[in-house]
């Protein structure tokens, strides 16, 4: 893998507080999801990657060069910040064009690139509207437009889907995937697992300022699956269902919730469990009302990995 971004023992602390603690990882072309709950250190890591902060310790490089105070790197990098802030008096087109001028493009090229970027994020119709009058979703998209307008090789997107409606969210996810397929390096942060999964299978899990796992999301899931998996089932006859389920060797525990006609079990092989459950319940005419997995969320993933 071509290494574009490389971190070696990078730490960042604000006074007594450690935000990023000795992280080492590398990122190559394609989309990489930076995943972690709020306060995990994602934004600090993003700021370190984009040269807004200087590492307190360790080495962080892009294309082999240090990032802090190395402005020529920004010809090749685009950044979509998390904060919802703009020069509100400007229109969307003025905003993108003004920032493009700072790249040294000619006026003709600035205009062309502005049009193209606004088209990419579906903001052509609102191009001459003041940003102050944009909706939250439109503001997210104009941030994305300024990040891609100069056609960078590396895109760093901090929570780019926040505040978008489902349609815009879907479009943006598709857009990010296309960028990845084109061979660009896209680092996108989120605290929502399924958002990241929709964009990429390559993730970097961060928690308490440390990298917990790095690589393919399926490998991480496999790792998780080695631990017993919680499954919550609400059905017409929970005790009978328990009697049938306990016979399987992968089921290691069952707990009842009499108040809600439900049970929670732990399975060591959730994939197999899910595949045989419908047939079993059908055969014994037990009506299934609800099935959920309390573990199918980011917190549980972290819980497993930290354990």
């Amino acid at each position: 893998m071509t290494r574009i971004l490389e971190a070696k023992g990078v730490s960042k602390w604000y006074g007594q507080v450690i935000a990023v603690n000795k992280v080492s990882f590398s990122v190559g072309p394609g989309v990489t999801g930076l995943l972690g709950p709020n306060g995990a250190g994602k934004s600090t890591l993003m700021k370190l990657i984009t040269g807004q902060l200087r590492p307190s310790q360790g080495e962080l490089t892009l294309w082999g060069e240090r990032i802090w105070n190395n402005y020529p790197l920004f010809y090749r990098m685009g950044f979509c910040p998390e904060q919802d802030s703009f020069y509100d008096r400007m229109t969307g087109a003025e905003f993108v064009a003004a920032l493009l001028r700072l790249h040294g493009f000619s006026e003709t090229e600035v205009n062309q690139r502005t049009d193209s970027a606004l088209q990419q994020v579906n903001l052509v119709e609102a191009r001459d509207k003041k940003i102050g009058a944009y909706s939250k979703g439109m503001r997210q998209r104009i941030k994305l437009a300024q990040a891609v307008a100069h056609d960078p090789e590396l895109l760093v997107l901090d929570e780019p889907l926040a505040g978008m409606d489902p349609v815009a969210r879907k479009e943006t996810i598709r857009f990010i995937r296309i960028l990845g397929k084109e061979g660009k390096c896209v680092i996108v942060s989120s605290h929502i697992l399924h958002e990241i999964e929709a964009m990429t299978s390559n993730i970097l899990l961060i928690h308490n300022g440390q990298v917990l796992a790095e690589g393919d999301v399926h490998d991480i899931r496999d790792l998780i699956d080695k631990h017993p998996h919680h499954i919550y089932i609400r059905c017409s006859e929970p005790r009978r269902a328990a009697e049938l389920l306990v016979a399987f060797p992968d089921v290691v525990s069952i707990r009842f919730h009499p108040e809600s006609n439900a049970l929670t079990l732990e399975s060591r092989n959730p994939d197999e469990f899910y595949s045989r459950l419908p047939g079993l319940l059908l055969r014994h005419e037990i009506a299934l009302e609800e099935i959920t997995s309390p573990d199918d969320n980011l917190q549980a993933v972290f819980h497993y990995l930290v354990k």
Binding site: T50, G51, Q52, N69, Y71, P72, L73, F74, Y75, M77, G78, F79, P81, Q83, S85, F86, Y87, L99, L102, H103, G104, Q146
Partner: peptide
């Protein structure tokens, strides 16, 4: 205060 400094700092211009 307006958190717009990011847009300037992430351009290929020396500070």
């Amino acid at each position: 205060e307006g958190k717009t400094l990011t847009y300037l700092f992430l351009r290929p211009i020396p500070k």
